[in-house]
Write a protein that binds this DNA or RNA. Structure first.
Lengths: 145, 145
DNA sequence: TATTAATGATTAATATATTAATTACTTTAC
DNA sequence: GTAAAGTAATTAATATATTAATCATTAATA
């Protein structure tokens, strides 16, 4: 097997490719894309978030978010509300239909997540987080061993 | 921090978002996208590969590959050659310019990879691979503990 | 061998990613 | 108080992802 396949980017991509289809088929039964679900999920414990806040939480690039929010709005799952304090900000608010869909889907999403968690021990999960965070840590704020 | 940010998909996406920019800025100085480099990289130790083989190695979906190969071909980095044995297959072959670019870029790419590897121990790297492969393993062929 | 089924690459349609530029609005600094 | 600098959302242009369908070719079967 060539070294290429054992690189860090390929390892991560391969893992994502391995786990996402199960999530995706659930999303599809509810007419959502991965990214659209992410936005709804980010709004779960919030009354409202600005577009920039959603972008930061979901890792979805701001320009992509415009279209994603357009489509969620067209589906009646969210609303846009321009801030009165600072008219540059747009607050994104889940509609009742959006909240209902969240409530319906979240348990199933968590069920899939749990099924993956059961493949490893809590210690392995901690290890995984520790190692990956060390990888992704920006160079500046890295502590030298 | 909401549980959402601690999910497996978000952990993996966050890590990729953290590490890819350094690769990407290198690719950009050579006028390549991530995916275009992946294809060249896959051809590194091969004289030629079919489109399907490249798709499987690089994890790039076959329909996306059509355009990616178009652009690599237009840049004079690869050539397409329809198989005589089975005219359904198309062999992808790096041109001399493609091989030169590979040879020039590969050390720099490996340098970036090494710099990430230095953040962790070889044992942590093995752990990481072991855990992630367990996550991505298809359910059917999973061994029960 | 004529038909049917399967396969590899491609096209089509829609959604998202990436980078740069723009627009509307706020804040700073002079 | 006004011009300049900064900020949040958006648009624009190009590249890629996702799913389904198509096209040409080959393999399988009656």
């Amino acid at each position: 097997m060539p070294k290429f396949l054992e690189s860090l980017p390929m390892l991560l991509s391969r893992t994502l490719d391995g786990i996402m289809p199960r999530y995706r088929s659930l999303f599809q039964t509810h007419g959502l894309t991965d990214q659209q679900w992410r936005v709804l999920r980010a709004l779960w414990e919030q009354k409202h978030l600005t577009s920039a806040e959603i972008s930061q939480m979901t890792l979805l690039p701001a320009p992509s978010l415009v279209g994603i929010l357009d489509r969620l709005e067209k589906k009646g799952l969210i609303g846009r509300l321009r801030s009165v304090k600072d008219r540059r900000h747009v607050h994104i608010i889940p509609t009742q239909a959006g909240r209902d869909l969240q409530a319906h889907m979240l348990p199933k999403v968590e069920q899939i997540h749990d099924s993956y968690m059961q493949r490893i021990t809590p210690e392995e999960w901690d290890e995984l987080n520790r190692i990956l965070n060390k990888m992704a840590e920006p160079a500046e704020q890295r502590s030298f061993a």
